[in-house]
Design a binder for these strands. Structure first.
Lengths: 110, 110
DNA sequence: CTGTATCCACGACGATACTG
DNA sequence: CAGTATCGTCGTGGATACAG
């Protein structure tokens, strides 16, 4: 079982750190997961089908990372086979607003 | 300080991509460089002294990356020894505003 | 269905030495 | 002063196989 541990990407900078936001958004799939969940609660399989070309391993890692950072919540239902639902937290919904600004920025300066 | 900082590119996603912003901000030193330059034009040596623990190699790489993405401009003066100045573009200044929002977001959800 | 285990490739970055 | 060259480290994520 391996340590899917978060390694801080930015150096420690106390007064003006944007590390939490960058950290959460920097994964290859994080943003796409957030965007999917912004549309509503989804299951693992739904996410994998909706996000093009993501492997189970990568999706699992992204979900763990986002959960650990309070961006989404994971709910397990003891059915057979297992059912798991993922839902954006308010914190995650707020973060999505920031990604919208990035999109606007990118479009403005194309 | 931390060892590694591999930053993956986001997958191609045409309609709502935030890739340009994430790509530019994801480097270990990018944000710190942008923050320094937001305060005003600076030379290479100034940047290196002001940014804690950054190596010439890493700083050089970050500057190249940011220049390539239109975040800053590089001006060489044919003095001896060489003088080089880096200045944030309007695009870069705009981007800095987004990082401020990330800071607010991070503080809000602490 | 929802993951984990293993192996491998890739690329950012540190350390050090060196250049015009 | 402002970088580059080279070597090494190590976190990500893809591929595939397997598990609860």
């Amino acid at each position: 079982m391996e340590a899917n541990n978060y390694i801080p990407r930015l150096p420690a900078q106390v007064d003006c750190s944007i590390d939490p936001a960058i950290n959460v958004l920097s994964g290859k799939w994080s943003f796409l997961v957030i965007r999917e969940l912004y549309r509503g609660t989804k299951r693992f399989g739904e996410l994998q089908r909706n996000i093009d070309d993501v492997s189970a391993r990568a999706l699992s890692g992204a979900l763990k990372h986002l959960e650990k950072n309070g961006i989404l919540e994971r709910q397990v239902f003891p059915t057979v086979p297992a059912t798991v639902e993922y839902t954006l937290t308010p914190k995650g919904q707020d973060l999505y607003q920031i990604t919208k600004m990035m999109k606007v920025w990118a479009a403005k300066w194309t």
